[in-house]
Structures are given as structure tokens and as C-alpha cells.
Simulated scan of single mutants.
Amino acid sequence: MPILTEGRTAGDFVLYEVPEYSRDLATIAAGADLDAGTVLGRITASGKYVRSVRTATDGSETPVAVLRRAAAAADADVPNAILQARHTRCRRLGLIFDASWSTKAHRDTACAALAAAGITTT
């Protein structure tokens, strides 16, 4: 019998949420496949979400959400992706940060931005 691998799930990073309130549906912009738990920023011009990159200048440099399920967005936008957008407590070590958030101080800044959006980390 073949071995099955589950992959990342929300159980890897969500500690508390209110399902009817904490989640949003949004579009993930094409460009990269993203795993569940990826810290996201929103592009100001389009309103689409991408991996938050600290050095970006399009609005996505500010972390505002966490991707709940993987999104295969390498070749095309992914509509109706589920995000943790507010009133959520996440396990910080379960989150996936872009490499630009390379130091503890940078990740502290990212977590502070998430907290401003209503997503706390422990």
C-alpha cells in the first residue's frame, strides 16, 4: 500500500478562530504556489493577495492575512482562496514567512502588522 502524505493544514498554525467570522474569501495573484500558513499581503492596486515580501512597494509589504489552504497560483490567479483575516490566534512557528522576513526583528514587525489586522501570534 502506498504511503500517503497529508501536507500542511490549518491545524499546523491556527490555535483559535471563529469560523463564521475569522475567514475571508479572496483572490491569490498568479506568480507562486503557496502553502497553507503563508503570511500574505494585499496588493493595493488590484486587491489581490500575494506572499508578503518585506521589501515590496505595492502594498503587499504589510502582512494582513494568513492563507488557510494551499493555493496553486504559479500560472494563474486562484479565486475564492480561504484566508484567516481577523480574530485568529496563530502559532508563530507554524507560519510561513517570505525569506525577506529573515531576522527575528523582521518577523516581530510582521507579527505586529498581523496583530493590527486582528491575527495574534504566540
Score class of each variant (00 low, 15 high):
103 T>R: 12
85 A>H: 01
42 R>M: 15
64 V>R: 08
87 H>A: 11
54 R>I: 07
55 T>Y: 08
76 A>R: 13
102 S>K: 12
50 V>Y: 04
122 T>N: 13
56 A>H: 09
98 D>N: 15
104 K>L: 13
49 Y>V: 10
119 I>Y: 00
81 A>N: 10
20 E>H: 12
8 R>I: 12
12 D>Y: 09
5 T>Y: 14
82 I>D: 11
12 D>C: 13
103 T>S: 15
46 S>Q: 12
86 R>H: 01
79 P>V: 13
34 L>H: 06
51 R>V: 13
26 A>G: 14
32 A>L: 05
121 T>H: 01
52 S>E: 03
78 V>A: 00
87 H>L: 13
55 T>I: 09
1 M>V: 12
106 H>W: 05
24 D>H: 07
111 C>W: 00
13 F>W: 09
81 A>Q: 07
109 T>E: 15
49 Y>P: 03
13 F>A: 07
64 V>L: 07
39 V>C: 08
10 A>G: 15
95 L>M: 03
106 H>K: 05
68 R>F: 14
80 N>S: 15
75 D>V: 08
58 D>R: 07
70 A>H: 10
21 Y>Q: 13
90 C>Q: 06
76 A>D: 13
121 T>N: 04
112 A>N: 09
45 A>R: 05
79 P>I: 08
45 A>K: 05
110 A>V: 02
86 R>A: 06
114 L>D: 00
47 G>R: 03
21 Y>R: 13
87 H>W: 06
48 K>T: 03
33 D>P: 04
32 A>S: 13
80 N>T: 06
26 A>L: 09
117 A>D: 06
42 R>Y: 04
81 A>Y: 02
108 D>C: 01
35 D>I: 00
29 A>R: 07
56 A>E: 07
89 R>P: 00
75 D>H: 03
92 R>Q: 07
104 K>F: 06
7 G>I: 11
64 V>I: 14
113 A>V: 01
27 T>D: 01
39 V>I: 14
122 T>I: 12
109 T>M: 05
33 D>E: 13
100 S>W: 10
106 H>L: 04
31 G>C: 11
56 A>M: 02
8 R>M: 12
97 F>V: 08
61 E>L: 12
60 S>A: 15
81 A>E: 11
94 G>K: 04
28 I>S: 01
89 R>T: 13
51 R>D: 05
5 T>C: 08
6 E>A: 12
55 T>H: 09
117 A>C: 12
21 Y>P: 00
89 R>Y: 05
78 V>N: 00
77 D>R: 03
50 V>G: 02
104 K>A: 15
60 S>T: 14
92 R>N: 02
46 S>A: 11
57 T>R: 06
63 P>A: 02
